[in-house]
Design a protein around this nucleic acid. Structure first.
Lengths: 215, 215
DNA sequence: ATCAAGTCTGAAACTTGTTCTAGATTACCG
DNA sequence: CGGTAATCTAGAACAAGTTTCAGACTTGAT
């Protein structure tokens, strides 16, 4: 039998559900050091500053090992994002949004997330760029991020049993959220503009309410 | 005085309005060969298949010259997209969408564009990935693409003087369009799903109509 | 026709993501 | 404890984007 159990040799990270072979304590520690180094480097310079050799050195791991844990730079950054998202979800869970309508609450939640990203614009850059640049080989991980985002939005809406129509609206909100972030990160949209875009798309949620009394 | 007039040394491509020094005939020809080679290579393999050395060779231009015309691979692909978008806009202009409402016409137009992209999925991959991966140094070019897209959507709406509310909806539609394309290209959403997303977001346009009689 | 300035070419060099290899380590089974 | 299969390490090697440079070529002006 192996030593240090085997790490997901080229597919998924432990993520959440997906049963992956349990990691040794030392392996878990390595993984954590790597993610930490990744976030740290991303925190300064953004996407470009996360250089695999540096991540390896910072986390005291050989380059080959880094690649065994995360099969590419994009995988690494998407995993970093998963990590941060979990953290965010926990944080947001502590005090739910106060808005009257579902649309307001979603917009409020997204703006809160946006403010968190503004505090670490470089980190945001690295994560979002990785997310949108990811090709098919990263689909499972990106999907996981997407599910997590959906969960956050549904939480904000406060619905236990969303209709298909509402789920469709949530999809569009996510699209807008990602794309708006990109325009902000690349300097083509101001913070105010992103706010407007979010508020605009959240009005879609209104459309899922009964027609009477809309507006 | 110079020879062959100077090419946009590291900023914008002739694009459209932005006054850039006129190109010699031979320079124009080079530029065209490069864009053609780029689209051709992108047409097979997508983003990864567009290798700068190959583009240079295919278009019979030295590598250094290629970089003089397009300061990076992303610049090149975004320019390729501009090129294709112009073509698309001309094509779409020929027979305008037939839908009853503005929302229907926009959805119809975007689906038509989507079908065009489906015919060349690799090309679509290269262009869209470049677009979303572009950093600040490509902002002017990406903005140009965005303006062109906006123009296409406004055309479809058939409005001569859109309200700010309508412009906000158009922004969100563009966000959704780009992001939905990405999910499709990376295999995380089906064609049918993209269609639904587009139709969903287009309902936002309805919100910009007077409240009476909505639905 | 000649000249000066800017362009193009071909090739090498450099950077950073990714892969590969040989040998040292580690985990677990018997 | 000893064996052994998998993991980790250090470092070389490879690939593709980008930069650099010397020299040949064009262009427009005199």
């Amino acid at each position: 039998m192996p030593a240090e159990a085997k790490v997901p040799s080229s597919t998924a990270r432990p993520a959440v559900q997906p049963a992956s072979p349990p990691l040794t304590e030392r392996q878990e520690a390595r993984r954590r050091r790597i993610l930490h180094a990744s976030a740290q480097l991303a925190g300064r310079g953004g996407f470009d500053a996360v250089q695999m050799r540096e991540v390896a050195e910072s986390s005291q791991v050989a380059l080959g090992t880094l690649y065994r844990y995360f099969p590419s730079k994009v995988h690494l950054l998407v995993a970093t994002m998963q990590d941060q998202l979990e953290h965010l979800h926990r944080t947001l869970g502590k005090k739910p949004p106060a808005g009257e309508t579902a649309a307001e609450r979603v917009a409020e939640t997204l703006m809160r997330a946006f403010r968190a990203l503004q505090r670490e614009p470089h980190l945001a850059d690295a994560m979002v760029r990785a997310l949108t640049f990811a090709d098919r080989s990263v689909s499972p991980e990106v999907d996981q991020v997407s599910r997590q985002t959906t969960a956050i939005i549904l939480d904000a809406m406060g619905l236990e049993d969303p209709t298909p129509e509402q789920l469709a609206a949530v999809r569009v909100i996510e699209h807008t959220w990602h794309s708006a972030l990109i325009t902000w990160l690349s300097g083509r949209a101001s913070i105010a503009q992103v706010k407007i875009d979010i508020e605009t798309v959240c009005r879609l949620i209104d459309l899922t309410r009964p027609a009477v009394g809309r507006d």
